[in-house]
């Protein structure tokens, strides 16, 4: 049986949802409270990494394949860049906050501060996918010893 003991698996099954939700909470209140895109991305990635540690790599990859993570990785950056370019298109300023007049910055109000929540979400997606991918890459490669004792790097499965 892959993964860790049944205790770890049971606890993980309960905890993973809360970690994920906490990540979501950090992302949507990123512009109001401490936190934001990067912290949120790491937390969300942690929930997947916890799955991988407890249940084994195949289980986690069934939930979020490395292919999908690659796509999310690129889309996050693209979303961030598109928001910046929209600022250039609407207000003539790269990274300009073109939504600020519609949604001005108000303390404790969720829909406020213009484009900043969108950028936060974009960064969150990007960071979560990247951290998860780094973890996959670290786990996919392993060193095995040949019969004659030389070390060889082996990839467990095709990454693509």
């Amino acid at each position: 049986m892959k993964g860790m003991t049944v205790i770890v698996k049971t606890v993980t099954r309960w905890v993973k949802v809360f970690i994920f939700l906490y990540g979501i909470y950090i992302i949507i209140t990123g512009h109001l409270a401490p936190g934001g895109g990067f912290a949120d991305g790491v937390i969300i990635a942690c929930s997947y990494i916890l799955l991988m540690l407890a249940y084994g790599r195949e289980f986690a990859l069934k939930r979020l394949s490395s292919r999908a993570a690659h796509h999310l990785d690129s889309s996050g950056v693209l979303l961030f860049l598109v928001v910046a370019l929209l600022g250039l298109g609407y207000g003539g300023i790269f990274f300009g906050n073109f939504l600020q007049t519609r949604f001005p910055g108000v303390a404790f109000k969720l829909l406020s501060s213009g484009t900043i929540p969108i950028s936060n979400i974009a960064i969150g997606i990007k960071v979560a996918a990247s951290v998860f991918l780094v973890f996959i890459i670290l786990s996919v490669l392993r060193i095995v010893l040949d019969e004659d004792g030389t070390q060889k790097m082996v990839q467990d499965e095709e990454e693509e």
């Binding site: 690659h70 690129s74 950056v77 693209l78 860049l81 910046a84 370019l85 250039l88």
Partner: peptide
Amino acid sequence: PLLVAIPLLFAFFIPL
């Protein structure tokens, strides 16, 4: 800004 934005945009568009 396009000088930085264009290469960056394509850098992440190509793998998609």
